[in-house]
Simulated assay, not measured.
Amino acid sequence: MSTSFDLFGTLVDAPRPEAPATAVADALAAAGVRVPDDWTAAYRQPHADHAPGMERSLSAHVADALESRGVEAPSDTVRAATLAAFETPVQRRPGAAAAVEAAAERGPVAVLSNCSVPGLAERALSQAGLADRFDAVVTSVGCGWRKPHANAFQAVADALDAPPETLVHIGDDPEADGGITAVGGRAVLLTETPLQAVPAALDDA
């Protein structure tokens, strides 16, 4: 059996910035990047078209927002500032380690996270002491698709070298994480099964 876990809200808690545009502006300024006077408007505007379900890197969006106001900045500086803006205290949720351990006893295990900030999921796993527990970490920004799109679940199945219909996916969002059923897999939703009860639920998979 192959298992994938959602990350934020499932294995860890990490609050988002209350004002993302402001958080990004502060991080850019700290990195020496000139922040446009109308930054909030630039940040909120779309700067690229993409198909429904596709993910675009937030750092690429930030770079485009700056460029739309005539500001150029090195891509690595923008990427680092975007990551810094979304780094908030991470707490491992009760039962997370036991759930991952139980899944690992049954086969390969991955994270599948809707995360548009490059490096954020990996940083959160490290801070939660879970970085070495997984055979693969797949993010929407990495694979290009957000859950519940079938391509996101196909990406994590490919990373585990498993057919998607054999995958058990565990998460807290019925809409996003429940999308696994569209490719024939099974969803274990925390709205119905508490994280502490996941090991027992895996016995029934």
Rank of each mutant, 00 (worst) to 15 (best):
A110T: 00
S57W: 08
T82R: 06
P174V: 11
E67F: 12
I180L: 13
L167N: 09
A97F: 07
A27H: 05
H50E: 11
V12S: 00
R69L: 01
M1P: 08
L11K: 03
R56K: 13
S126N: 15
Q45V: 11
A19E: 14
A23K: 00
D26P: 03
H169D: 05
V168S: 00
C143N: 09
A42I: 00
Q154G: 15
A104Q: 04
V168W: 01
G142W: 14
L11E: 02
S57K: 10
R79Y: 02
P164C: 04
V117W: 08
K147V: 10
A84Y: 03
E165M: 06
D135Y: 07
P89S: 00
G53W: 06
L125K: 00
A128S: 00
C143A: 09
A42N: 06
Q91H: 07
P36T: 00
H61N: 00
A41W: 03
A48R: 14
S59M: 04
T166L: 03
V138Y: 08
L125H: 04
A103K: 07
A162H: 00
G171L: 09
P148W: 09
A152L: 10
H149F: 00
L11D: 02
V62R: 08
E192S: 15
P118R: 01
T82N: 07
G32V: 07
D161C: 03
N114M: 10
D173S: 15
C143Q: 10
G129W: 07
A30V: 13
T22Q: 12
D38V: 02
A152R: 09
N114Q: 10
A102I: 03
Q127W: 10
S59I: 02
L190Q: 14
D172I: 10
D37S: 05
A128P: 00
E192C: 14
C143P: 08
V111T: 08
H47L: 03
D76F: 07
L28A: 07
V156I: 03
L112K: 06
A73M: 11
L167K: 06
A29M: 09
R34Q: 11
A84E: 01
P46K: 01
T193K: 14
V35T: 04
A197F: 07
S113D: 11
A136W: 07
A104W: 05
G171C: 09
R44H: 03
A51P: 02
A29C: 06
E122A: 15
T77A: 12
A110W: 06
A97N: 10
V12K: 02
A124I: 10
I170H: 00
A14C: 11
V141K: 15
D172E: 05
T22G: 13
F86Y: 02
D161H: 06
T181W: 06
D6Y: 05
A136Y: 08
